[in-house]
Design a protein around this nucleic acid. Sequence first.
DNA 1: TGTACATCAGTGAACGCGCGTTCACTGATGTAC
DNA 2: TGTACATCAGTGAACGCGCGTTCACTGATGTAC
Lengths: 205, 205
Amino acid sequence: MAKRGYHHGNLRQALVEAALSLIEAKGPTGFTLSEAAKQAGVTPAAVYRHFDGRDDLIAEAARQGYEIFADLMQYAYDKGQPSALASFEATGRAYLAFARQHPGHYIAMFESGISVNRTPELNHASARARDVLERAAQDLSQHIPADKRPPAAMFSAHVWAMSHGVVELFARNSPGTASPFPPEDLLETGIGIYLRGLGLIPPDE
Amino acid sequence: MAKRGYHHGNLRQALVEAALSLIEAKGPTGFTLSEAAKQAGVTPAAVYRHFDGRDDLIAEAARQGYEIFADLMQYAYDKGQPSALASFEATGRAYLAFARQHPGHYIAMFESGISVNRTPELNHASARARDVLERAAQDLSQHIPADKRPPAAMFSAHVWAMSHGVVELFARNSPGTASPFPPEDLLETGIGIYLRGLGLIPPDE
DNA sequence: TGTACATCAGTGAACGCGCGTTCACTGATGTAC
DNA sequence: TGTACATCAGTGAACGCGCGTTCACTGATGTAC
């Protein structure tokens, strides 16, 4: 057991984890501070030893999510190197993989309604993730003739949007309908076609 | 005034409209039945003359949204005819236009967490919208050589995902950050590059 | 090793609040004669 | 045209609930002597 310290031990992190599992199970609306406290085996009032309140707890869960997310993006980027194309494709895949593996974090980050500008730490972590994708886009844009090159920030936004859309519409059961294709395939082919449109993949395969 | 009938007149629709404006102003979480009743100038209990409860009211708001949405998609499709390409592009644009013009409906439909399978009417209306986009994709796929043609449902899903992602990430202030480009441009160029990747637009412009 | 003390994480009771929902009712309207 | 009645949309009071938050407290732990 990680019961270092006295009394509970590591209540702060236990509360974050309880919050994550509740958010994952019942959606951002279903989460309550009282229930998170209960799940951690503690009185609601105890939460206030570690957090300013309900929203602060969610924000911390989101922050940890952004850290993991940024690390994942960075790792994917590095793994794709030195190929700009491989790096770019890997970061797209990392988005979906993150949503799959960390649904609680994902919801806290993108569906709980908390703003990324809430705290500097939150902002910093999310910027880190965004920067990795933009760097990958930047690398890639070197391979497009300068005169017909769209801004890197633009096609990083395109891929970000397609990834987000695939996750929201087809990888989570939001609109109730089942996905017509495996989300991974959908994203893979979608990005493939898009990159072909940029002239970065030969038209025939 | 539309005070037909006696007493309030058209309370049912007034409640839907109150719900929409509250959802738009305060998010799906901020909406409460009591406040909607208050805004319509009526006691909370009066709501139960017209709806089964809170969720039923949101569902009706979403249903009306899907009807408007499907009509808009159909109109866009028709306007693009007889060009398959024009029809397809127009439906993509219609998605964003809808989110812009009917934010309350949009949130009720896509962010309130109510399932499309909640009622047959809701399901029917959403299927109508999806069908228009898929028909547009089907038309378009005729212009791709049969041997290298991806399933129409797949690239309708791609465009749906990109549209949804652009709206969520850049047209609404969800993650707090401002958009790097006007969402309309982002979607326009994104779909353009994608269609080029499909070989439906000449590589040089 | 043993005792006295300081620390502070977590307790437990209480609060005010607004929620969704119920119920018997009331009174404005439409209708029958 | 006038009166008696039926309808039923909306009222107002009440409910039980769980929420987030506060507060004085307690008691397990670490530390000093």
